[in-house]
């Protein structure tokens, strides 16, 4: 119930976010002049006629960054719950064999493993934008 109470305002804000731009664009539709000409709807390319399609394929190098990002972001997701429990009295008293120092060292070990991954990628040259 409390969680629902927390997210009701968020849901209302979501509706605001969808409705307000549409309402503004509706007002603009009423106020703005309308004059159609085919030239007006061409893509801007510094005055010359656009050539080819803009929806090109992109460089596969982006994937290396994307995979690295996923790696680091998932690692961060493990850290978020950890910061809330590693010094929480309720957890420390009720979970057997769980101490602050133990959990800090466990997380440090985890971070070192992930860091090794970053160092490896770095040495391999994946992080170089210009190859």
């Amino acid at each position: 119930m409390e969680i629902i109470d927390t997210f009701i305002p968020v849901a209302i804000f979501l509706i605001f976010g969808l409705v307000i731009p549409l309402a503004i664009m509706f007002i603009v539709k009423q106020l703005s002049p309308r004059s159609k000409s085919p030239v007006k709807f061409t893509t801007y390319e510094s005055g010359s006629v656009p050539s080819g399609s803009a929806n090109i394929m992109f460089n596969v190098e982006y994937y290396a960054y994307a995979i690295l990002f996923v790696l680091f972001d998932v690692e961060l997701l493990f850290l978020y719950p950890w910061v809330t429990v590693y010094m929480n009295d309720v957890v420390l008293n009720n979970v057997p064999n769980f101490t602050t120092i133990f959990s800090v060292f466990a997380m440090a070990f985890f971070m070192v493993v992930v860091l090794l991954g970053l160092v490896y990628e770095w040495k391999k040259g994946v992080l170089n934008w210009v190859k």
Partner: peptide, 13 residues
Amino acid sequence: KLFTKEDIIPAKA
């Protein structure tokens, strides 16, 4: 000014 400008969606968009 922004409210009274024409709303343009390019043909290729």
